[in-house]
Simulated assay, not measured.
Amino acid sequence: MALRPPLLPADPDAPFPPGASALRQPDGLLAIGGDLTPPRLLNAYRHGIFPWYSDGQPILWWCPDPRTVFRTGRVRLSSRFRRELRRSCWSVRADTAFEQVIDACARIPRDGQHGTWITAQMRAAYVELHHRGHAHSVEVFDGQQLVGGIYGVAVGRMFFGESMFSTQSGGSKVALAALARCLHGWDWPLLDAQVENAHLLSLGAELWPRDDFLAQVAVQTQMPEPPNAWTSRFGTWPARLLADPST
């Protein structure tokens, strides 16, 4: 008989089941139902849990084992890509085109994926988190054209990446590396990437046992986040700065 994860109660402040109780098959499925209100979402992220489902499904909540994680000081760009960046005229900034980034992430074709998990309900939920200062985007521009980006959720000094995209080769790599560069400078040690794939691993992602990941999340999400909006803290700077491996 197949095991079923528990249904979440209607109260958005109700606790989630412990991450360690998630199913092995499918890996990491923890709970079903509930809603995507800001209190529920922030409660989930504080405990290393994220929603992921498709149209026609109930809301599914996940906490996989192992967890794919970047150390913010160890994102890896190839020497060839760094050489290309030295000639780049792209610029990078944050939180100036959040809705464009999430829409681009929803539209971009992905291998083995039909449609998108960024449903209208998910989009509305993360736009609301953005308006409340919890969801952020890093954007890569070629002049006035958006060519890459990443968005996710910040709680305390922990960043949970949700999705990224490119419309020109390397756009998502620049967005990820730029985000990691700034997080590292702000003393945020980790960037959650949720589920492994070959592309993330090639950029330096690590596979962490779930217990180790959740222990770090418990610490980082309780730390105070420095004040000021991300747009001003991040600034606008040329992507070619990423060509120097020491930065």
Rank of each mutant, 00 (worst) to 15 (best):
A193M: 10
G28F: 03
W117F: 04
K173R: 15
V92L: 09
W117D: 02
G185V: 08
R233M: 07
A193W: 05
A215L: 09
G148H: 06
P66F: 11
L85H: 12
Q220W: 13
D95V: 13
A180E: 05
F234P: 00
V140I: 14
G28K: 04
P227M: 11
R233Q: 12
I108G: 01
A44V: 04
S78V: 03
L146I: 03
H131Q: 15
S79F: 06
W230C: 09
T116C: 06
R24K: 14
D13L: 08
P15K: 00
T236S: 14
D65F: 04
E225G: 10
G204N: 08
L29F: 09
R83H: 13
L241W: 07
V195A: 03
P58V: 00
G33T: 00
L8P: 00
S21F: 05
W52E: 05
A125K: 03
D212H: 12
P226M: 09
P6E: 01
L77N: 02
R40I: 00
S137Y: 09
E84K: 15
Q220R: 13
A215D: 14
S246Q: 15
L242S: 03
D13I: 00
A44D: 03
A104Y: 09
G73P: 13
P66M: 11
D27K: 10
R210H: 09
M223V: 06
S91Y: 13
A135S: 13
P17F: 00
L8H: 00
R123F: 07
P226G: 01
V75P: 03
A175R: 05
Q57C: 13
L60H: 02
M122K: 07
D142F: 11
F141A: 05
A10M: 03
R87V: 03
D65E: 13
A178V: 11
F16W: 02
P17S: 11
G34Q: 01
A135H: 08
G235D: 06
V92C: 04
G115W: 08
V140S: 04
N197V: 10
A178Q: 08
F160A: 08
H134M: 10
G170E: 06
G152V: 08
Q121P: 03
D55N: 08
P5H: 00
H134T: 07
T116P: 02
Y53D: 01
R74E: 15
R107G: 01
A193E: 07
R71I: 08
L129I: 10
V174K: 01
R71H: 15
R233F: 07
A10K: 00
R83A: 14
A20F: 02
C105M: 07
G148F: 12
T119I: 12
L8M: 04
L7V: 00
A22C: 13
V147I: 15
V153A: 05
F98T: 01
D11N: 03
D27V: 11
L190E: 04
P189N: 10
W237E: 02
D27E: 13
R181D: 06
S246L: 14
F213E: 02
P51W: 05
L190Q: 07
L183R: 02
R87N: 12
L30S: 00
V127C: 14
F98G: 06
H47R: 07
L42F: 04
I59P: 01
L179D: 03
D211W: 04
E99D: 15
P18G: 05
D13N: 06
W90P: 01
N197F: 11
V219N: 09
Q25I: 09
L30F: 01
